[in-house]
Design a binder for these strands. Structure first.
Lengths: 230, 230
DNA sequence: GAGAACAGGATTGTATACGAAATTAGCCGA
DNA sequence: TCGGCTAATTTCGTATACAATCCTGTTCTC
């Protein structure tokens, strides 16, 4: 059990661990400020610190965790400024991407999106806000995928990751992340192939999201451990 | 000489190495396809493979090098598709960023830009095309800096890095990278605080750049080793 | 003579080990 | 009782060591 004979999956173990951590962060099961000790993480996944370190470095480059020299790795807690920047960058990238998507979307793409949004609504009804948030993010990523621009998709993926942190810190009303139906409207525009409408809808959707954040002061007490007192 | 007692510079050794490699790539002293063996690189900088590995992983995440499992790290050679995507992403980000920059630029910013462009012209006159290219990239980064959006600046920085690879592979005429004066015009717009003009100039500058690439077929013989036959 | 199997060498993937830095706790003195 | 200094512990930064994989050159068989 402690020994691990097989090595090769073709995919590095570090990326697997990074994926698991990323997912936990997206679902808000790991909150900003949480310390990610190399020993601890390595123990959980039963790998050495070398591998753990590689995973953490990966996430650090995505700015999902911040590594402080000689102090360790923590789940990142974006400042107010960073929070604004993330949404400004999204406002720059996503509307035009939505337009491209509308111009390229196939029937299969639309079907997948509808399927996806059903899952979103289901999660919302069940009150599983963590899952709902994750699905909501994936919706944006799926649109980027349809636009078929890998590079931009990567950027958007990163921004959505960080948005998840921003929401964890600055969301105004904890419980109900409002059922805005913005995604439904977007799908309709995509289905019609109406690029201009899609661009406009995405743009205002992002403005809406931003307006639901409270970016006027330092984050509330959701920080863990001593970071709350630092 | 072989022992390295002092450890702490506050900045990790891996990042220093990554910087050095990045610079070499930007200046086209390392060309796409070149193998970056961990032993070799580690030997050059007199660090162990562990540190080398971290540096390479960093660059891999910027897509400046590609790491093939069990094969090693190579200077990335972007495909034609990637090349297009990089410039499409730049077209999405940089014009609006230039507009922001125009609206925020101080006299000091403008002075710095003028200084920078003088260096560009000097390098061009001396025929040092590697240096000229590097400075040209930094010019774009400086504009992003003026816009004061760290997140977007990071993206642009990445894209410019990759542009350097694209240019190494697909530039049409090897020797003269044409003196286009596009940067001069941009500075004038920024100095006037004319955001709309800056946005438009940046946009057409990028189109110009793209049009100087030959993206119709697989890259010429600048690939090294077996990658050329793969 | 050509193709396939095999052995040797080289290179990467991962783990363990050691040294340095920072935090924490304890102690002493004012 | 509280502030500052020192020692101990914890955790990170880097190097070294071992195992697995891939590449290359040779040899064996048909």
């Amino acid at each position: 059990m402690t020994k691990q004979t097989k090595t090769a999956t073709g995919r590095s173990r570090a990326e697997d661990i990074a994926d698991r951590l990323r997912e936990a962060i997206h679902a808000h099961r790991l909150t900003p400020g949480t310390k990610l000790s190399e020993d601890e993480v390595g123990g959980i996944f039963d790998v050495s610190r070398t591998t753990t370190r590689a995973a953490l470095q990966l996430l650090a480059h995505e700015q999902l965790v911040s590594i402080e020299p000689n102090r360790g790795a923590f789940v990142a807690s974006p400042s107010i400024r960073e929070a604004r920047e993330v949404f400004e960058a999204r406002a720059l990238l996503e509307p035009r991407t939505a337009r491209s998507a509308a111009e390229r979307a196939t029937a299969a793409d639309i079907a997948l999106l509808r399927e996806h949004i059903d899952a979103e609504h289901a999660a919302m009804r069940e009150g599983d806000s963590g899952r709902a948030l994750m699905l909501s993010g994936e919706f944006h990523i799926q649109i980027a995928k349809i636009a078929d621009q890998d590079t931009i998709e990567d950027f958007i993926r990163q921004l959505i990751s960080r948005s998840s942190l921003v929401i964890a810190l600055y969301w105004r009303r904890q419980n109900a992340l409002c059922e805005s139906h913005a995604h439904d409207a977007l799908i309709e525009a995509l289905a019609r192939g109406d690029g201009v409408a899609a661009e406009e809808l995405m743009s205002s959707h992002l403005v809406d999201l931003l307006s639901l954040l409270d970016l006027r002061q330092t984050p509330p007490g959701s920080l863990s451990l001593k970071d709350a007192l630092a």
